[in-house]
Amino acid sequence: MIEYLQFLGQEVYKIFFLLIPILVSVAMIVWLDRRVWGLVQKRKGPNVVGPFGLFQTLADALKYIFKEIIIPASANKTVFILAPIVTMTLALVAWAVIPMSEDLVLSDINVGVLYLFAVSSLGVYGIIMGGWASNSKYPFLGAIRSAAQMVSYEVSIGIIIINVLLCVGSLNLKDIVIAQKELWYVVPLFPMFVIFFISALAETNRPPFDLPEAEAELVAGYQTEYSGMMYAMFWLGEYANILLMCAMGSILFLGGWLPIINIYPLNIVPSPIWMILKILFLFLLFALVKAIVPRYRYDQLMRLGWKVFLPFSLVYLVLTASFLFYFDKLPKGNF
């Protein structure tokens, strides 16, 4: 029994040391996002609290903690409280399978990609629950929009993932990274990388696809009735999801922890640093898109997802499969 307790303690310790860096980096990433946004608009952005304004997010979080949590009288209390918890938990739980280096991963499971896909498809529940439980029209409309949007773009993300899996021949995230030792998949699958990036924007409700919270139409969408710490949890969960999508993009297309080229000064840099640099690069793209691109109209968004991305990625899937088959490059697997 003591062995089990020791084992359990070790696991808890590991989880703790995974979660703390993620939460800190979420706080930093919020700062970076606002900073980039400010620079694009020729403002300074948050620069007062701490050096370069780095502690701005912490100050904001502190403010949210001490604010009153208001629960509307006509809301469904249980679901209302559950919704931000679900969002935050799902955003953090997915990090268990993200490999930061060859052996720095919490749980190295065989179906890592499927796990990531499953958890990110569950993310829609937090939003639906929040929107419905508020018992008010704007949150509900926002929730419906966001659910339709996330379900639609998951389809094309799924097909893009299949594209990568065809080249790798394994669902394990480590295998996917190791298979890119020769050539990152961003080169042969470049169109898929672009579509993945845009779908990730839609999946995380980022501008230009932030229709669920289009402030001109829906006040603040599904978060309208939320206040205090519960709002902050939605907000942090959203950013944790964005980081997750960046990590997914860098594992699937940018070679995860691998250096750009395997030569002397580059390959002594520790692998987690490469991974972090790639995640940051993708996040900078996210932040720039937010600052530059105007918002889509809802029907345009749906059209883009179903009539452009889905057929295109299907055709590309057939193309990839035929190419691999014709040149006899299909991965043989370990049997």
């Binding site: 499971i109 179906v111 499927l114 796990y115 896909f117 499953a118 829609v124 639906i128 419905w132 379900v151």
Partner: peptide, 25 residues
């Protein structure tokens, strides 16, 4: 049966149940 478990989550929870929830709401 990890593959089956994950597919159950993706298909039923991630897609079918969302539509259920839609309809009921």
């Amino acid at each position: 049966a990890e593959f089956l478990g994950m597919i159950l989550l993706i298909v039923y929870v991630g897609a079918v149940a969302v539509l259920f929830l839609f309809v009921v709401m």
